[in-house]
Design a protein around this nucleic acid. Structure first.
Length: 746
DNA sequence: GCCGTCTGGGTTTTT
DNA sequence: CCCAGACGGC
């Protein structure tokens, strides 16, 4: 939030003043290793710092900024430093403040989106917006898309709004406004209507005086295209540009950076191609892979000294990632001061997911008793459904835990609703806010009434709120709606004299919204009331409502950093950038990890991203890693059996300790390919059903009668790649790998 | 307009 | 299995 209240040097400071000579070497350089130091002191021209896991990338970035300031190479506001998460930018700001003092706050340091917002706010009119435009959250976006689809007679069950939203966002990620999308790039989604809907969506945003996250980057891009003189201002201002997590940038971000860097050409990007795990969100690894060709004069510095993990952990991780092609290549080395190669990476197979969870929690409890705090251990899963089994065990053992990766604070229903009330009070033309809460709590204003409002609004070109007076409404409905409108007006008046937090309190009370949850009997209602209280706390830090609304739109995480002693369970994706003494990596099975969908949809490229995810997981650990897999897993009610992940085969023997218990009925054996297979289950390939060729449209296996060693006879109902859904005569529906069953005559 | 029943679909999710 | 969203009866 703080970057918004700063005085904005663009247009006001003719920053031609430059470089005071450096006096003496600042003390903070002494702590760096030679490569880090080089990365900090190579200030001229484009620089790519390939920074492996645990090699001190954040330290390099912050020190570099401090160095630029201390050396007198730039004023704070001439430095632009971009990160991906609010957390990263907050941390960087704190560390920088620690090093250089309050000057830190004048550096342009923030997320891409916050920086985009800052530019947008400065040139609102040029971007085709009115002041106080809204930033849509993802739920707003989806509702809007859905509405557009329905208005155009699309069956939103057949074509889900989510997919269309995704398509549009991928276009935005690539810096494409609707007119820039060529027909060839249009998808066949909805008979090729996606592009048209994109245009309509943008029009609707404009009517609503709103932007979405993608627009926070797209609009500045368009602004710079249309107004070269404005671009010039920024180009002149930013003497130095620094980018964190460069492997995760999308094309729009790349284009923005490229434009801004044209002024002084001092751009320093820090990243690790091996940790690129967000391609499905539009991140483009090519940005980092092509850095050298885009900036031919670029220097590339590799940071390979790892200060985090033991030699075995690094050995296992490095060997695994070496299976990927198309890397820039870098080998992590144990930093000099760690001599001990540590424990081997433990690999263990279990009979089922429940046993896996039980054994892991047992170990964690043992570690805890031996003195490792829970906060230094983590369970990292591929898919969020996996957290469930662990949650049950953790409750059973009475171990405090937190699960990360659920809904973010500001994305929770009750928070979005409360914010919608505030938005509407701030600005009654915010139709999306109005439709969200007009019948929440239930006021008897349903679809019919809303339709009438919409009709009137469209005719008179008014907002829904202002259309109330014109809409054709039944008297009883008119009464309730008018009462609602009067409430809003009351709060608008109250806003003049109340602090934002007090205003929210009043709104929640008088609207009946708080009461709605207080009287709700469902299990999570209590938590929602708590969250609403927490929101009031957050709000008390703000002086103006406007400021808060902007903050809430860009910051999706809650700031609650509990220092409580608890175990973290989270997805691999969420773990990037973190580190723990002990890391548990369950669920390393074909189909789950690598995930079947990643393979089906993106083939080899998808597999490599999965492998990078595995690499991220292993490299989170300082001292111990345990990788596990289960032969059977209950997924959505049906039992599925699976093979150990190919990633396990890719781990080098000298770094792993396979603890799979051979005394259990299903002992593991090595087969010719040096891969594991389940002895009691394995069916020789020639007995298995034939595989469909990839891309084959129709299944040759659906409807066939099959035999399975455990479940007996059954019929194939559905085919998903290698996995068959089979209805067994005596055991019901199961999902089974094709190789475990044999075809029989009906 | 509300509320119950049914159906389908369920990777990952920095802003 | 478990949740969200659609649909139909009151």
């Amino acid at each position: 939030m703080d970057i918004f209240d700063l005085e904005d040097p663009v247009c006001s400071v003719p920053s031609t003043e430059d470089a005071r000579p450096i006096r003496q070497e600042p003390p903070f350089l002494a702590d760096l290793n030679p490569e880090q130091r080089e990365a900090v002191q190579t200030t001229k021209g484009p620089l790519l710092v390939l920074s492996g896991a645990g090699t001190g990338k954040t330290r390099v970035l912050t020190t570099r900024i401090a160095y630029l300031l201390a050396a007198g190479l730039a004023h704070p506001w001439q430095i632009l430093a971009v990160t991906f998460t609010n957390k990263a930018s907050r941390e960087m700001k704190e560390r920088l403040e620690h090093m250089v003092g309050p000057e830190a706050f004048s550096v342009w340091l923030g997320t891409f989106h916050a920086i985009g917002m800052r530019i947008l706010k400065k040139f609102t009119a040029e971007c085709g917006l009115s002041p106080h435009f809204i930033v849509l959250g993802s739920d707003d976006q989806e509702r809007l898309i859905k509405q557009i689809m329905q208005d155009n007679g699309i069956d939103t069950k057949k074509y889900t709004p989510g997919i269309l939203l995704d398509i549009i966002q991928r276009w935005k990620d690539r810096g494409l406004i609707p007119t820039a999308v060529t027909d060839a790039e249009n998808t066949n989604f909805c008979d090729g209507k996606a592009l048209g809907f994109y245009q309509i969506y943008q029009n609707r945003l404009k009517e609503l005086n709103a932007v979405d996250f993608g627009d926070l980057l797209l609009k500045p891009l368009e602004l710079f295209k249309a107004y070269p003189d404005i671009l010039k201002l920024y180009q002149n201002q930013f003497h130095y540009i620094l980018v964190d997590e460069y492997q995760d940038t999308n094309v729009a971000q790349y284009m923005l950076l490229r434009l801004l860097a044209k002024g002084h050409n001092n751009i320093c990007c820090v990243g690790d191609d091996d940790q690129s795990i967000y391609s499905w969100r539009g991140a483009d690894v090519d940005n980092i892979l092509n850095f050298g060709s885009v900036f031919p004069e670029a220097r590339i510095i590799r940071l390979e000294r790892n200060y985090r993990s033991t030699a075995h952990i690094l050995g296992a991780a490095s060997a695994l990632i070496a299976h990927n092609e198309g890397r820039l290549g870098k080998t992590l080395k144990v930093a000099d001061d760690i001599n001990n190669s540590g424990d081997l990476v433990r690999v263990e197979g279990f009979w089922n997911g429940q046993q896996e969870a039980e054994k892991i929690i047992e170990r964690i409890e043992g570690n805890q008793r031996a003195g490792t705090p829970l906060t230094h251990m983590a369970i990292l899963v591929r898919a969020s459904f996996q957290t469930r089994a662990f949650e049950e065990e953790l409750i059973r053992y009475g171990i405090p835990y937190k699960i990360i990766g659920g809904f973010k604070f500001y994305e929770r229903e009750e928070i979005r609703d409360a914010v919608a009330y505030l938005r509407l009070v701030l600005n009654t033309t915010d139709d999306l806010a109005l439709t969200r809460i007009i019948n929440k709590p239930r006021r008897g204003i349903g679809d019919g009434a809303l339709k009438a409002l919409e009709t009137a609004a469209r005719e008179k070109h008014l907002s829904l709120f202002d259309a109330i007076d014109w809409a054709e409404l039944r008297p009883s409905v008119r009464k309730t709606i008018t009462a609602f409108a009067n409430l809003i007006r009351d709060w608008q008046e109250a806003r003049q004299e109340l602090e934002p937090a007090q205003l929210l309190e009043r709104i929640l009370k008088e609207s009946g919204y708080l009461m709605m949850w207080q009287t709700d009997k469902s299990a999570d209602a209590e938590g929602r009331v708590e969250n609403l209280k927490e929101l009031q706390n957050v709000l008390s830090d703000f002086d103006s409502l406007q400021e808060f609304i902007e903050y809430a739109a860009l910051v999706t995480e809650s700031d609650e950093q509990s220092t409580e002693e608890q175990l973290t369970v989270m997805t691999l994706h969420a773990s990037k950038g973190l580190e723990f003494d002990h890391v548990y990596l369950p669920g390393w099975e074909e189909g789950l990890f690598p995930h079947q969908r990643a393979l089906d949809e993106n083939g080899h490229v998808g597999l490599e991203e999965e492998r990078r995810l595995a690499y991220v997981g292993i490299t989170r650990a300082r001292q111990q890693v345990m990788i596990s897999y289960a032969a059977n897993r209950r997924i959505y009610g049906t039992w599925q059996n699976s093979l150990p992940s190919r990633f396990i085969d890719e781990l080098p023997q000298e770094h792993i300790d396979n603890q799979t218990n051979r005394r259990m009925g299903w002992a593991v054996q090595q087969d010719i390919n040096n891969s594991f297979s389940w002895k009691s289950h394995s069916v020789s390939p020639q007995r298995g059903l034939p595989f469909n060729k990839p891309g084959a449209k129709t299944s040759r296996r659906v409807g066939k009668r099959v035999y399975h060693e455990m479940f007996g006879y059954g019929t194939v109902i559905k085919e998903e790649g290698e996995r068959l859904e089979i209805h067994f005569d005596e055991h019901g529906m199961k999902k089974i790998l094709a190789r475990f069953v044999e075809a029989v005559s009906p």
